[in-house]
Each structure stands twice: as structure tokens, then as C-alpha cells.
Amino acid sequence: MSRTPRDPEGRMPLREHLVEVRKRVVRIALGLLAGAILGWIVYDPLLDALVEPLARASEERGALIGLNFDGVATAIDIHFKVALFLGVIVSSPWWLYQVFAFVNPGLTRDERKYVFGFLAAAVPMFLGGVVMAWLVLPSVVLVLNSFVPEGNANLIGAQLYLGFVMRLVLACGIAFLVPVFMVVLNLMGVVSARTWLAGWRWAILVSFVFAAMVTPTLDVMTMFGLATPICVLYFAATGICFLHDRRTARRRVVPAE
């Protein structure tokens, strides 16, 4: 069976794109499954690490602070969620590659060279966001528990606490991918640096709204702690885009004979 012909630039027709979507989704699911199996195996030490900020806050506050498994199926439900949480993190190089392997056939030959550069930047940026969230988590938990009155216990619902932690960690990782997308779109000539700079007010607003949604508490420090690095990365990516646009403009200038 012959393949569907491509255009002169090497782009795929719609039918091949749909087939490619299915193939990449299946591969991403298999990667997440493999990572989740690892998460299932190491569940106990992983749960201990996730709960460690509560134990530290309990020790520093001298109060009873811990998890409350308040349902018959809560423990097994959390087991699955924690396993999948680790699966998303450890398989991030794989699913990021699949995303851009899907985009790659739709690009021209000149644009495809940026895919590998994106992947080389996207993986450490995602993991960097995960690490940053993990480092600030103990401080966040301690601050939030500092409002518990003396002599009182704070038994937090396991679903509520672990959902908050996993959402915070993964959201930071995804947020740190935004500057990489910005640079790639600029390198491909889709969005100019001036366009990114013109939207700086919206970028700051969206960053703080995103931080507020990820940390639905009254802790303003957490919101600022998450939104600030996102804003810094936005402006850093805009600066890189300006350098690229300037370099591109110079190349277009034909030297006088």
C-alpha cells in the first residue's frame, strides 16, 4: 500500500496526521503506564517523602499534624494517584519527545531542526519546575500549619493534601515549559519578540491567576513564590527571542558591493 503523497515541503496530509495522533497517544499512555508501575513499586518510600513536610511541621510546631484516610477506598485510590504522579514525572522525556515527534512531520525541513533543541531544553525545564516546587513545599506546609491554634491537632484529609502537593509539583513543571514554547515559536517565525513583549501585562496577570488556581489557599507567599519565577522566565524567553530576531534581521541585510 502506497503512502499518501506529501507536499513539496514534506508536510503530512490530514489523514496521516490523525493516524500519527493515535500512534503518539498510545505511546504516551504506554510510557505513563511504565512509569506508574515504577510508582506502584516504590509507593511506600514515595508516600513517606510526600508526607515528610507534614512530619517536619508537626515536629517544629509541637502539635499533631498528619494525614487522615477518611474513606473505605481512599487508601487504594491514593495508591493509584501517587503511582501515576511519579509516572508522569519519570516518563517526561518520553512524552515530551512524543509530543514533538508528532509536530515534527508537520514542519518544513528548516523548522524541524528546532525540535531537537526544544526537547533538549524542555526536559530539564520541566524537571526544574518539579524540583523547585518540591524544594518550596516544606516551607509552604509549615506556613499554612502555623495558623493552627496552640493545643489543637490538624488531621488533613489524605486526598486533599496529596492532591494539593501533586497539583503544585506538576503545575510548576508545566509552567516552566511555557518559555520553551515561546522560544520555539519565535525560532519558527510564528511569533516575534515584540509580540511577546507587548503582552507582558497579560503574562503577569495569567501567571498570578495560574498560581492562585494551583494554590487555592489564603497563603499569598505561596502564590508569589510560584508566580515570580514564571514571570522571570517569561521575560528571559522574550530576551532570547529579541536576540534571535536581531540576528535574523542582520542576516537579511545584503552587504553593499
Rank of each mutant, 00 (worst) to 15 (best):
residue 158 A to R: 01
residue 159 Q to I: 01
residue 159 Q to Y: 00
residue 160 L to K: 11
residue 160 L to G: 07
residue 160 L to A: 14
residue 160 L to F: 09
residue 160 L to W: 04
residue 161 Y to E: 07
residue 162 L to K: 05
residue 162 L to D: 02
residue 162 L to R: 05
residue 163 G to M: 02
residue 163 G to F: 08
residue 163 G to L: 02
residue 163 G to W: 05
residue 164 F to A: 02
residue 165 V to I: 13
residue 167 R to S: 15
residue 168 L to C: 12
residue 168 L to S: 14
residue 170 L to T: 14
residue 171 A to H: 11
residue 171 A to L: 14
residue 172 C to R: 11
residue 172 C to D: 15
residue 173 G to W: 14
residue 173 G to K: 15
residue 173 G to P: 14
residue 173 G to D: 07
residue 174 I to D: 07
residue 175 A to F: 12
residue 177 L to M: 14
residue 177 L to H: 13
residue 178 V to T: 12
residue 178 V to G: 06
residue 179 P to S: 13
residue 180 V to I: 15
residue 181 F to C: 11
residue 181 F to N: 09
residue 183 V to F: 14
residue 184 V to P: 01
residue 186 N to S: 04
residue 188 M to T: 05
residue 188 M to V: 05
residue 189 G to F: 06
residue 190 V to R: 12
residue 192 S to T: 15
residue 192 S to H: 07
residue 193 A to E: 03
residue 193 A to G: 15
residue 193 A to Y: 01
residue 194 R to Q: 13
residue 194 R to C: 02
residue 194 R to L: 09
residue 195 T to N: 11
residue 196 W to N: 01
residue 196 W to G: 01
residue 196 W to K: 03
residue 196 W to C: 03
residue 197 L to V: 04
residue 197 L to H: 01
residue 198 A to T: 02
residue 198 A to C: 01
residue 198 A to R: 12
residue 199 G to N: 09
residue 199 G to V: 03
residue 199 G to E: 05
residue 199 G to A: 12
residue 200 W to D: 00
residue 201 R to K: 08
residue 202 W to A: 05
residue 204 I to F: 03
residue 204 I to K: 00
residue 205 L to E: 01
residue 206 V to Y: 04
residue 206 V to R: 01
residue 207 S to D: 04
residue 207 S to Q: 06
residue 207 S to H: 02
residue 208 F to H: 05
residue 209 V to F: 12
residue 210 F to T: 12
residue 211 A to T: 06
residue 212 A to T: 11
residue 212 A to Q: 08
residue 212 A to I: 03
residue 212 A to V: 08
residue 213 M to Y: 05
residue 213 M to Q: 07
residue 213 M to P: 00
residue 213 M to H: 00
residue 214 V to F: 05
residue 214 V to P: 09
residue 215 T to W: 01
residue 215 T to I: 13
residue 215 T to V: 11
residue 217 T to Y: 06
residue 218 L to W: 10
residue 218 L to C: 00
residue 218 L to E: 13
residue 219 D to M: 10
residue 219 D to V: 04
residue 220 V to Q: 08
residue 220 V to C: 04
residue 220 V to L: 14
residue 221 M to I: 13
residue 221 M to Y: 12
residue 221 M to V: 12
residue 224 F to T: 00
residue 225 G to P: 10
residue 225 G to L: 08
residue 226 L to G: 02
residue 227 A to H: 06
residue 227 A to L: 06
residue 229 P to S: 11
residue 229 P to W: 07
residue 229 P to R: 11
residue 229 P to N: 09
residue 232 V to Y: 03
residue 232 V to F: 09
residue 233 L to S: 10
residue 233 L to E: 07
residue 234 Y to W: 09
residue 234 Y to V: 02
residue 235 F to Y: 07
residue 235 F to V: 07
residue 235 F to C: 03
residue 236 A to S: 10
residue 236 A to H: 02
residue 236 A to G: 10
residue 236 A to D: 06
residue 237 A to K: 07
residue 237 A to M: 08
